[in-house]
Design a protein around this nucleic acid. Structure first.
Lengths: 118, 118
DNA sequence: TAAACATGTCACTATTTGGTGACATGACAT
DNA sequence: ATGTCATGTCACCAAATAGTGACATGTTTA
C-alpha cells in the first residue's frame, strides 16, 4: 500500500525535508540546522515517517547518520494517480467549463483561480 | 499553496471518493450509499475537504447536490513534484544501488523490496 | 578513561483529524 | 399546508499527529 507515502507527503515540513535531500544526502544534524523552528526530536520523527514510506534511506557512518532521498515512490504514486485520473481530465474539464459558463458561480471561479496561482 | 491538495489526498477514504467520482458526478446521497461504513456527516466532511482543495466542485440541483471531480489539481501537484525530484532519480538510484551492493544491509534490502512490491 | 558529540528513545502535551448523533433548512409531492 | 426527502450545521468524542524536554546509547577525541 502506498498509503504511507501519501501520509508522508501530506506534511509540508516533510516535503521540505525531501527538497533539502534532493541535492544530496544530509546527516540528521544537517537537517536540524536547516529547520531552526523545530527541535531535533521533531526532525527525527519526520525522518521516521519518511523512512517508513521508503522515501528516505538512512545509513550509519560513525556517530552520524546520513539520510538519502529515494524519489522512486513519489514517482510511482504520482504516475499511478495521474494515469488513473488523467483520462477523465478532458471530459471533466469539459463539464466544469460548461458549468462555469452557464452558472458563473463566484466561489468556484475564485477557488479555481487560487489553485492556478498556487 | 497546494498544501490543501496534499492534505486532501492523504486520506484513503477521500482518494476512494475521487475514484468514485472518476466515472462521473454523483450526488452526496449516492456517495453515502457507496460508503456504508461511514455516516452521512463523515462523507460530507470528506467532501468539504475535497472542495476546499478544489478537487471536487459541488453544484446544487433542486434538493440534491451533485459533486463533480476536478482532476486538474492532482495532475498539477504531481507534475510539479515529479519534475522537481525526477531529475535526481537517476543519481539517487545510483547512490542507493551502490549502498545496497556494498553494504548489503538487510533492513534496506527489505524496505526497497517492499516498495517494489507495493 | 573521560569529555564531547551525534543520534536514539521515552513520557508527556496540545492540536488536528475522522467520526458520530441531533437538529435545522430548504425543496418537492400530496 | 404539510409531510418527506436531501442536504446543511452543530456540539461533542476518540484517535492520530506534531511537538517538546529529559535521558540513554554509542563514537570519537583528548
Amino acid at each position: 500500500m502506498d498509503d504511507r507515502v501519501w501520509k508522508a507527503l501530506a506534511d509540508s515540513t516533510r516535503r521540505a525535508v525531501l527538497d533539502a535531500l534532493a541535492d544530496g544526502p544530509l546527516t540528521t544534524g544537517d537537517l536540524v540546522e536547516r529547520f531552526p523552528e523545530l527541535c531535533r526530536t521533531a526532525v527525527m520523527k519526520h525522518l521516521d515517517v519518511l523512512v517508513e514510506a521508503n522515501l528516505v534511506v538512512p545509513r550509519r557512518e560513525g556517530r552520524q547518520r546520513w539520510n538519502d532521498l529515494n524519489p522512486a515512490p513519489i514517482q510511482a504514486v504520482c504516475d499511478r494517480w495521474v494515469s488513473r485520473h488523467v483520462s477523465r481530465l478532458a471530459s471533466a474539464m469539459g463539464r466544469l467549463k460548461g458549468l462555469v459558463e452557464e452558472q458563473q458561480r463566484p466561489e468556484a471561479a475564485a477557488a479555481s483561480a487560487k489553485s492556478r496561482k498556487g
